[in-house]
Design a protein around this nucleic acid. Structure first.
Lengths: 342, 342
DNA sequence: TTGTAGGCGTTATCAA
DNA sequence: TTGATAACGCCTACAA
């Protein structure tokens, strides 16, 4: 591992000159001939600057820590991946790297604590929420992050007093699938949610219920089920719902993948979609487009949310943003799984 | 940003004692009373060890660099995500972090060069291949990686002399979808590939062709198309193929998503699957399972491949692996999109 | 135009 | 049981 000193020796100059030249190729601080010798030495010794040493010296790493408080394997969830994709593309544009930390903890608050332990030196953080995060844990996570004295933005986490920089995906806070189904004349709507205890699922539950009540529709708690975001589970739950509540005319699913599972269930029961049963997804993922029938869904603009978060964080790092909330609204995508009821 | 020195001062001990204690809580090198004072100081000052400084001192970062030579946004491709998921879960178990680098370069060789530039200090690398990588570029990438003097493993890259540590997904080298279709009696098989120029696509092309020739089936180059791995493109290409070559009985697609696009095309043309046309996918992704009809596909065990790569890299880092090739075989998953031809 | 010296935070060696 | 000191590789202020 060749160091700047070896380059200096080989080129017959001082380490300072090498450093200055390599950080600013067109500096006038170093002569043309010297520059050439340095270039040659760099080539000969396969020199690359050690980011750890330079971070230590500059007190700036150009690395962003990604905090995802989940015990599931990373990169296995379409939703989080889209968020990450947005974050990465934006950060990459500005020359920032992304760091993902290990953790062997069980609960989401311990995971975050461990990850922060291994993260000192990052220039900032993005905190994701997951189905595992309870309100308590998130508050703890935010406090933990605040102690680092580095900027951070919360992404896709329900509104929180404590967080200064937030990007919110609005449709996770209002249950607009239910709203749409009501407009289409549906009155018997089941709701299929993600993990119980997750903040999003809870919020959706609450809003679903009040939307129904505002529309003077009786609310039956048994028509709301919590799952695990997986198609298989949704398949089983949809079957149960459709047999237990035959008067149901619509299933509002928290994700397209759950909707796809529900569609399979309905088909297997000999029901036609949308004539016999309407099914809403959420996300506008590829599954929604490729399904037959194509799934009516809500585009959450997840990637944009990721980009916004990255953008906001960079602004905070260079000091131009102090406190800000960005709301990403959803867009209804009407396809073939919802019928109108007279 | 409190340092070990401030902790030492507050606790009334030397930095050395603090360091030793924090790295080994039950050391006998530090007295019990001292330990307590250190713990208190750590709490009071929100101290976390600076990984950059510690890396510099230990010459070990416990960070693995992930090199993905693509200009597409990361985390937006199901295939790569599964690979990454395997890599991350395995590495996380052993306490390693993952680092993703930025790049604004255009070609895959420049991307890798830039990324390596920003990576010195990582303990090792995993090099991914992408549809953008030509043979030339990959060779250059490997050479570049070798110069770092750190271990690296190539993942999902066709066999390469130069690389010492490799994990190969076997089915990307033999076109087993075509083999299966031949066994099922098909003789008129079109092949729908990913990006032209990509090494995998080329290899598949070659093997498809020789499988046909071995079976004494005439090969028509016009029945092979290159795409972009996207469903939309596959949809259009499938329509073209099915109109231009009405005698076709099967479409072998390089990915499930392309297969899903092809299925949509066939349906739109009024063809029944698999009675009128058989369609093979590859990957055994969620799309294959959720599609109607469910797609017959080849499970590539992508996540396992990622885990193997991580495992191999860790073995190389601790010196127990020097040179090794791991082959991940594919498994045929028979579902509902391929018929038998008498 | 160039070199010297000190510091970034942590760790390891050696002496007390 | 503890403390002083040098080293990891880079950067920058200051001196030449």
């Amino acid at each position: 591992m060749s160091s700047i000193r070896e380059i200096a020796k080989l080129a017959g100059v001082s380490p300072a000159s090498v450093s200055i030249y390599l950080n600013d190729k067109k500096t006038s601080r170093v002569g043309a001939a010297t520059k050439q010798r340095i270039d040659q030495a760099v080539k000969d010794l396969h020199y690359h600057k050690n980011i750890f040493a330079s971070t230590l010296s500059l007190q700036e790493s150009r690395i962003i820590g990604i905090i995802i408080p989940s015990k599931m394997p990373l990169f296995s969830n379409e939703y989080t991946n889209s968020l990450l994709s947005g974050v990465q593309s934006q950060l990459s544009n500005e020359g920032y790297s992304l760091l993902f930390f290990p953790s062997d903890a069980r609960t989401s608050d311990e995971i975050v604590e461990q990850q922060i332990q291994r993260s000192t030196g990052c220039d900032g953080y993005i905190l994701f929420s997951t189905g595992f995060c309870t309100q308590d844990h998130i508050e703890k996570n935010i406090m933990e992050l605040q102690k680092t004295d580095k900027p951070f933005v919360t992404l896709n986490i329900p509104e929180m007093e404590q967080a200064r920089l937030q990007v919110l995906i609005r449709d996770l806070e209002i249950c607009s699938g239910t709203k749409y189904l009501l407009e289409k004349g549906h009155r018997n709507i089941a709701l299929m949610l993600g993990r119980d205890g997750g903040m999003h699922a809870r919020k959706l539950y609450h809003d679903h219920r009040s939307l129904l009540e505002h529309a003077n529709v009786a609310f039956d708690p048994d028509t709301v089920v919590f799952g695990d975001y997986q198609a298989q589970r949704a398949y089983e739950q949809a079957k149960n719902l459709l047999t237990s509540f035959p008067h149901l005319t619509a299933l509002n699913c928290m994700s397209d993948i759950m909707a796809a599972g529900a569609i399979l269930a309905a088909k297997d029961m000999g029901l036609r979609i949308p004539e016999d049963i309407s099914i809403m997804g959420r996300n506008n993922s590829l599954h929604a487009r490729l399904s037959t029938p194509a799934i009516t869904t809500i585009d959450l603009h997840i990637e944009d949310a990721g980009k916004s978060a990255a953008h906001l964080l960079l602004a905070a790092i260079d000091g131009s943003a102090v406190s800000q909330k960005i709301l990403i609204p959803g867009t209804l995508i009407e396809r073939d799984t919802v019928s109108t009821i007279a």
